[in-house]
Design a protein around this nucleic acid. Structure first.
Lengths: 324, 324
DNA sequence: TTGTACGCGTTATCAG
DNA sequence: CTGATAACGCGTACAA
């Protein structure tokens, strides 16, 4: 592995000059071209570890998400990437699998590899950010809040829950259930609250009986839906507060022969890759990609030295109901 | 940011002793606990950049994939992660977006950050691996071959194409089209070849007329399917050589009112999150997750010093046809 | 077992 | 514009 010393001696200049060439600092064209030639023959590339140790930063952003198999987060990731790459940053993804200890490890790595900053979709509301915060590295929470006073980009979750529930009641359903995520994840809690408010106002049944907490994946949605169907008086409609639980619920309903108007379904978050037209499903759109773009933008501002107090951006007007 | 020197002076020992404590080398329990106490109060963690510069390696594996929004690759990624974490490695994901220059950048980063090794699903057959190979870092190709003599984990693609085509012909279809990926990606080429062999043997039409190259995403599948439908004599069945193109084809067919037995569909690779039962679709399963597990296993063997010649593992028997 | 001192490959400072 | 040199934070001979 060639170093700047090798290049320097081959080009008959000092190591400092080599460094300057690779950092766009003023160097006479004569020496510069000698350096480039030498670097080419030696197949030299600056060692980022050493550079990063010296400069105390790198051009890499860490994006830490809880579930890489959820298209919502991959879409968000694409948003982050597109924005970051446009600004010259690379993005590495870390999957925490909803596990706060894995999350801590990745944050540790990000900081300790001198990455420029972190965008975090927290695994829970008791994530441990001390490693990041104590080093003063820029960090932005996205989608979910982390329980710290840091930058954040969120959507207005309660209205999303309200919209989903309202759509079903307006369609004439009477007992609208809710399949939501684990407690302690604020997106889930807020969306549930939105559903609850509408349901209580609507009246005619006891909403709390029709609330199920599940994990945020397909099997969670399946289990919850199956449980709801086994009730003495089952719901006639259901709100799923994320996309994958929605898929699970739809699967169980489909398997039970309950389609279309028999049981109403509203899902918060786009259904991934729906091959078949989900004609009778209400979708409350969440701007996943734009969450990513916005978070990357905020983070890069911080990296560039922005020191205003932490702020939270709420993408209020991007929630839309598509009842096809 | 606390360093070993800070910890050392607080614990009244030498920096070397601090280092030893954090690397499990013999240290008297007395001093060890003093070090741990000091480290705790200073909130110290070893700086990975410095460590990695010194040791010339890290405990991080890079997984470089072409499309993070394709569930096939995220599933593969989960396989890699699970295996790697079990062995004490962390995994960072890099998304190349099918772009060889982004790919080169990420490989560059991986090497130059002293990552332990790379698992690469190549963006094309002319990827540039010189940065990795010249440094002698372990690398494993997965899913697709990279055009170098390196370790690889693949599936037997041609039989997959044959199985998909055969299933449709056996179901009585006469003109089985094929929507495949870009030329130069060997998985696509091989699967196409499988379809072609079966189609030619079957006879009764000119298969080449019913072959379409598309990008590997949903819109690629949509465009190709639309094109096929506009033929004077459209196909009565179609093989999609990857999951997302399959979704695109199904969407277009569904929109055209062509469901179920009107037009037959076979897809190579699991359909992601199918909320509705794709009753009449033939799926040729590709063991995405196991590809990841196997690749991680191979890579870690290399990291641990295995020096046998490069080998390619083909997961032959894991392809299964599920015609529900 | 412990400490001293050097080097991993760069970049920044400071002379010239 | 250029070169020598000191860090960046850590691990590891080598010596004690």
């Amino acid at each position: 592995m060639a170093t700047i010393y090798d290049v320097a001696s081959l080009a008959r200049v000092s190591p400092a000059t080599v460094s300057r060439v690779f950092n766009g600092m003023p160097v006479s064209e004569e020496k510069a071209s000698a350096v480039r030639a030498a670097a080419a023959t030696l197949n030299f590339t600056p060692n980022r570890t050493a550079r990063s140790l010296r400069k105390q930063n790198s051009e890499v952003i860490a994006l830490v998400i809880p579930d890489i198999e959820n298209p919502f987060f991959t879409s968000l990731a694409r948003g982050v990437e597109d924005r970051a790459q446009a600004e010259g940053y690379s993005v590495v993804l870390c999957n925490t699998d909803d596990d706060t200890s894995k999350e801590a490890t990745y944050l540790e790595i990000a900081i300790s590899e001198n990455m420029a900053g972190v965008i975090l979709a927290p695994a829970s509301d008791h994530s441990d950010l001390t490693s990041v915060l104590s080093r003063g590295r820029p960090i932005v929470a996205v989608d979910r809040s982390a329980g710290y006073d840091i930058d954040g980009v969120m959507v207005d979750n309660r209205p999303a829950g309200q919209a989903a529930a309202s759509a079903l009641f307006k369609a004439g359903y009477k007992r609208v259930a809710c399949i939501t995520g684990p407690q302690g994840i604020d997106t889930a809690d807020e969306r549930t609250m939105g559903w609850r408010q509408v349901a209580i106002r609507q009246g005619g049944y006891v909403p709390e009986l029709y609330l199920r907490n599940a994990n945020h994946r397909v099997d969670g949605g399946r289990a919850a839906m199956a449980d709801l169907l086994s009730m003495e008086v089952p719901p006639d409609a259901v709100v799923a507060t994320n996309n994958l639980m929605g898929v699970g619920a739809l699967q169980v309903l489909s398997e039970a022969g309950l389609t279309a108007p028999a049981v109403g379904v509203a899902v918060i978050g786009a259904l991934p890759f729906s091959a078949l037209d989900p004609a009778t499903i209400t979708i409350v759109e969440i701007p996943a990609r734009n969450l990513g773009i916005t978070a990357a933008k905020m983070l890069i501002e911080r990296i560039n030295g922005d020191t205003q107090p932490p702020r939270t951006i709420v993408l209020r007007n991007e929630i839309s109901v598509a009842s096809a």
